[in-house]
């Protein structure tokens, strides 16, 4: 759930959190192609409970996700993964362990692969984030996406977004000199269906432009 506000109404980060809330701590202003796209004020459901309870600290962040700039007020506890999934409706990145052990949440932040579950959204002011939803060029899949299909490098598909984002990072880093090297540098992404040999093949093919 998100609250969309015109840019001018977004609270500056130094100001006390919303006085209107006990509801939702995120405000989103989206700038696409330079134009301000602002939704009207959406008031979330009121909570029950003690009026005196303190609002959780929140902060204002401007970040670009898949080429679209978002300025958001975000609960300081919110991970990049939860920001993407629960507030920006980008559910392609998956939560497999929420502890950095499985890699299902892998996205690129400023070109580097990161576990978005371990990355606090509030720290990402000015960051450029690429998720699985932003990898293809319109209808044209990224070479690694196509390679995953061709090699059947997935079964259930739940780890696939993370595998592909991690594979893009792996190729970019130049860690694709051999199957052994790919295996090592792709080991942060667990595939419980066990498609590893095919994942290696897909990364190798994409790296070599096959």
């Amino acid at each position: 759930m998100s609250t969309e506000l015109p840019e001018s109404t977004v609270s500056p980060p130094t100001r006390a959190p919303f006085t209107t809330s006990r509801r939702t701590f995120i405000a989103t202003t989206t700038l696409a192609g330079g134009a301000v796209v602002a939704g009207g004020l959406f008031v979330g459901p009121n909570a029950l409970g003690d009026e005196s309870a303190a609002e959780p600290p929140s902060g204002r962040v401007s970040l670009t996700v898949n080429g679209v700039r978002h300025t958001v007020m975000v609960d300081n506890r919110t991970s990049l993964l939860d920001l993407l999934r629960e507030h920006l409706d980008l559910t392609g990145s998956k939560k497999g362990c929420n502890a950095g052990a499985c890699g299902a949440c892998t996205v690129l932040v400023d070109g580097q692969r990161v576990n978005s579950c371990l990355t606090l959204a509030v720290r990402l002011d000015g960051a450029e984030v690429t998720t699985i939803e932003g990898l293809a060029d319109g209808e044209d899949l990224h070479a690694l996406q196509q390679a995953f299909i061709d090699q059947d490098a997935f079964q259930c598909g739940f780890c696939t977004s993370g595998q592909i984002m991690s594979g893009v990072g792996c190729i970019k880093e130049g860690h694709t000199g051999s199957a052994e090297e790919i295996r090592e540098w792709m080991s942060g992404n667990i595939c419980r269906c066990g498609c590893y040999t095919k994942i290696v093949r897909a990364v190798d093919h994409a790296a070599r432009g096959k």
Binding site: K94, E133, L141, F148, I149, G157, S161
Partner: peptide
């Protein structure tokens, strides 16, 4: 190749927790 391959490599396959009914 899998008929749902494109959905799965683009993040478009919706698993249980990817559903967000209004409210």
């Amino acid at each position: 190749s899998r008929v749902d391959g494109r959905l799965k490599v683009t993040g478009g396959a919706d698993y249980a927790a990817d559903h967000h009914p209004e409210g």
